[in-house]
């Protein structure tokens, strides 16, 4: 789609959306949000970019093949689960640490994995469809 207005507006909106998606991801453990929602917002952002600027531009922007993002997400989730396994607890048990009072734990890492899988899967699919159409 060749629309100057769309591509101009899109640039600003996309940045905001990606930022918002990260915000949703991080605060999701305590307030509405989380990996699924965040991932969908980010995916929508890239989708908007692809509509405004074309798929090749989006691929350049991503730098990484979205399929790789999907698999990295799965890997991150596995690693988050293995932390507990190495401590002798069942796979995917939450392990927490409190450096300076900030709760950091493997469930958050796991949520990052979910986020990446959702982003990667949706973008993989939609970009491939756009290219084919």
């Amino acid at each position: 789609m060749n629309s100057l207005i769309l591509s101009t507006v899109a640039r600003a909106v996309i940045a905001l959306m990606v930022l918002f998606s990260l915000y949703l991801l991080i605060r999701g453990h305590n307030l509405p949000g989380g990996g699924f929602v965040g991932g969908l917002v980010a995916a929508s952002a890239f989708l908007l970019h692809a509509i405004a600027n074309g798929v090749p531009a989006t691929r350049r922007l991503l730098r990484v093949d979205p399929r790789a993002i999907t698999m990295i997400g799965v890997a991150v989730a596995i690693i988050a689960g293995l932390v507990a396994a190495f401590q002798g607890a069942p796979f995917l048990t939450g392990v927490w640490a409190f450096p300076g009072g900030v709760p950091l734990g493997t469930p958050l890492l796991f949520d990052v994995g979910v986020y990446l899988v959702v982003v990667g899967a949706v973008v993989t699919l939609v970009l491939a469809l756009e290219e084919d159409a």
């Binding site: 999701g28 453990h29 305590n30 307030l31 509405p32 949000g33 989380g34 990996g35 699924f36 939450g94 927490w96 709760p103 734990g105 469930p107 958050l108 796991f110 949520d111 979910v114």
Partner: peptide, 14 residues
């Protein structure tokens, strides 16, 4: 147990 106030999210990730 899950260090999270969003119960739905804690169920999902923990």
């Amino acid at each position: 147990g899950g260090q999270g106030g969003n119960i739905v999210n804690v169920i999902l990730v923990d």
